[in-house]
Structures are given as C-alpha cells and as structure tokens.
Design a protein around this nucleic acid. Structure first.
Lengths: 225, 225
DNA sequence: CGGAAACTGAACCGCCCGGTCTAGGATGTC
DNA sequence: GACATCCTAGACCGGGCGGTTCAGTTTCCG
C-alpha cells in the first residue's frame, strides 16, 4: 500500500515537504520547454501547482533548482540504456538493434530538450556538460565498447581500439538525421530514412571491423564496371 | 513593413549610417559571447562604440539585429570551405586532408559559438537552424559528395549513395572530440588525439568505400600488417 | 560657410523578473 | 481545543531590461 503519510514517527524524514516532487516536476517541464533564462519562477510555481513561497522554501534560488532538475534528468536519461539487447546474438544483429535504439533515443523529444539546454547553459553551469556527457554519451560508449570487446573475443569482430570504434559507431548512427533534428529542419523521420542510416552504419562498421565470418560480401559496384 | 536592409533602395551610396558596420561587429561579439537572451542592448552599443539611439536607428529591435548578425556569421562560416584541397590527389590523401580541415573547423571557437547559439535559439528563430545548416553542414556535405562521385568515376572509390557516405565521413570525423568540445570537457586536443580520430575515420571509410586500388590491406588481427 | 543629416548621452518609461514577506488557511497530533 | 507545521495568495521591492525621446554636438557636402 503506497501510504505516504508524512508522519513516520519522527522527523527523520529529510524530505523537506509534501510537495517537493511537484516542484521538481513543474520545474522540469518549464525548464525543458523554455531554457533557464526564459523560464520564470512564477511560471514554474504555477506549473507545479505550488506557491512561490513554497518553492523558495525548498530551493534557495533559481539556479540551484535548475541544477537539481538537470541533474535528475541526466540520471533519468542514463537509465534508458541498451541493457535489454541480447549481446549474445550475432554481431550484425546486435549492431542493428543497438543502432535502432541509439537513433530513436537521440531523436527523442526528451533527449533533444536536455541536449539543447546543456549546450546552451554549459558555460554558466560548468558541471552541466560533464553531467550530461557521463549520463549519456559516455555510458553508451562504454556499453558498446564492452560488446565490441566481447565480440572480438568471440572472433566475430576485430577491434583493437574499442573506445574509438564505439564512438565511430555512435557517430555513424547520427548521420544526417541528428543534424536535421537538432536544427529543427524535421521533427519526424520516415522509416526508410532511418533504415537507410542504420543499415549504412552497420555496413560501414562491419566493413572495417568485421572478420571473415561477419564481413559481408563486398557489395561494391565492382559488379558494375 | 520594416526594412531590414539599409543598403537597398535607390541611390548608390545610401549607406544608412557611417557606423553601421561597427554596430554589427559589436553585436556579433556580444551575441556570440552571451547568447541572445543575456546580451543586453546597452552592452552591444557599448561594445560597438555607438549610442543606443544610433543602434535603434539601424535596427527596429533586438531580434532583427540578432537575426542579421547570425545570418552574416553563417555566410562567413560558409566561406571557410574545402576549396583549397587538391581534389585530384589520391583519394586517401584527399580524405585525410579533408578530415583535418573538418576537425579543426568543427572544434574552432567560432563554430562552437555559432553552433551553441543556433541550437539554443532555433525555436525562437525558426529560420536560424536552416540558415546554419545550409551554410555549414550542407555545403560541406555537397562538397564531399562531389568528390566522392568524382573519385568513384576515377575508380578510386566505390560509392553508391554519395550523400549518405558524405554524412558518414563527416560524422566519423567528430568521434569523441566533438562531443567533448561541445560539453566543454576540453577546449584543446593533443595532436595524437586528433590524428587517432582522423586516421580512424579514413580507415573506416576506405574499408567500406575503397576499391581494390585504394582499400588498405586488412589489418585484421589474423593477418599481420 | 551653412544647413541637413547623422550621432551622442542621458534621462526616461513600462514591464517583467527573482526574491521577500505577511496574514491567513489547511491539516494533523496531542 | 490548542499547537505546530506546511502551505497559499498576492502584494511588494529593487533592479535590469528593451525601447523612446530629446536637446545638443559632430560630420558631411554642396
């Protein structure tokens, strides 16, 4: 039973107030929508369904509220990883499904919003960039690198510099799509656009890092001329 | 309807004011440093060595001044292209020197600043994203694509989808470096870090798109170099 | 020289913002 | 009922902002 009765014997409860989470949620909505500068504290309080006094009861100022919100969102983002992929499947299968996960995560509304804010505010909030990097790109890279190492051990791939290869793979997944999304030229992409990029990424990657077992027969236009 | 270009209209030397360029320069400095929201018009006027009244004589409001500044900076950026590269050299040479140009351009202070602003303000200034995209990534891509087409004709490469391949190459050049730069984890990179990425990018690219003439002997672990 | 046009500096306006404060309303515990 | 705690609505403050105005100065050019 989800009883959140605020009286659990004594004030060993650190949680400063009943509406603490509401404040964070409202702040997240407004900050992600408007950015730090344009988000007004009044708007946040309104969105949180809370009075401004209550808000300032929890957080001493706007900056700290912002930092806390972004820190949490970075953590949240870190959860959405590639864990569910069956790393024991054939390399090409793993790469393809990883690519699909990466693409859809990168293009998601949420990731875009957090990315935008982190980029824009990274000078005023120096730790922000690092937080985002570690919660997103860095985790992704180490997961991919671990897989590459394992696949190399199995003889399916031949990767010496796993971190470089992992970065390359992630970058290949961005091709075109990400840029267009970041600059708001498109907000949705057709399935065949996505497949084109994913298949292209896997093909390029395997051409370089595949072994004889996994490298596809060269589909070069050598057939052509 | 507000006139956004003081140089238009009839006479030749109408130049709405002697200090027009000063204003643009000052505005560029401040906007690129502080972004749109945090840049105050007073600061811009001060940086331009001009009174606020003069500034508002040229531009009806802050938004339009901003748009004009960014439009010019995008144009300026477009100039710094790959033209000077000798496209007739062997493919690997061309790719390597192109990669070096791309990397140094991407990591430059100027490009970072413009990128940041475009990303942050792309929703409030919808045409901004497109302007940046066309002046930067898109030009780059079409130049690379043109080279790939030519190299394929020469039989040095074997590329079917030139735009995809061009995007992939540009993405490969970003690996790791760009992310770290954008999030301000580093502001300078050692020469061997850069070379590692560039060589890696070219190797991956040639493994997929090279022909027997240009594809390097596979450096797979089985076969020694 | 003389007058128009460009430019200046500063004061000024209205607005909104971050942040404070107060008087009072719920709520729950003894 | 009394007390304590949390919360609320909104008035309030100082300040910075974008933008305007204006009286006076500089520059340009015939």
């Amino acid at each position: 039973m989800p009883q959140d009765s605020p009286m659990t014997a004594k004030p060993d409860r650190i949680r400063k107030g009943r509406k603490f989470d509401q404040v964070l949620e409202g702040a997240r909505d407004i900050f992600l929508r408007d950015g730090f500068e344009r988000a007004s504290v009044d708007a946040i309080a309104r969105a949180a369904g809370v009075s401004k006094a209550t808000l300032y009861n929890y957080f001493p100022d706007k900056r700290l509220l912002f930092s806390e919100v972004l820190r949490r969102e970075c953590d949240r983002q870190a959860g959405a990883a590639l864990h569910e992929i069956d790393m024991a499947a054939p390399a090409e299968t793993v790469l393809k499904s990883a690519a699909r996960h990466i693409v859809s995560a990168l293009l998601s509304e949420f990731n875009q919003a957090v990315f935008r804010i982190c980029v824009a505010e990274s000078d005023r909030f120096p730790n922000l960039g690092a937080a985002f990097y570690q919660s997103g790109p860095m985790r992704l890279r180490s997961e991919i690198a671990a897989f590459l190492r394992e696949a190399t051990r199995r003889g399916e791939l031949s990767v010496e510099d796993e971190t470089l290869a992992a970065d390359q793979f992630a970058e290949l997944c961005k091709a075109d799509l990400y840029t267009r999304r970041v600059f708001r030229l498109d907000n949705g992409f057709a399935e065949d656009e996505i497949r084109r990029v994913i298949d292209g990424a896997v093909a390029v990657f395997l051409a370089r890092y595949g072994t004889d077992r996994t490298r596809p027969p060269r589909l070069s236009p050598a057939a052509g001329p």
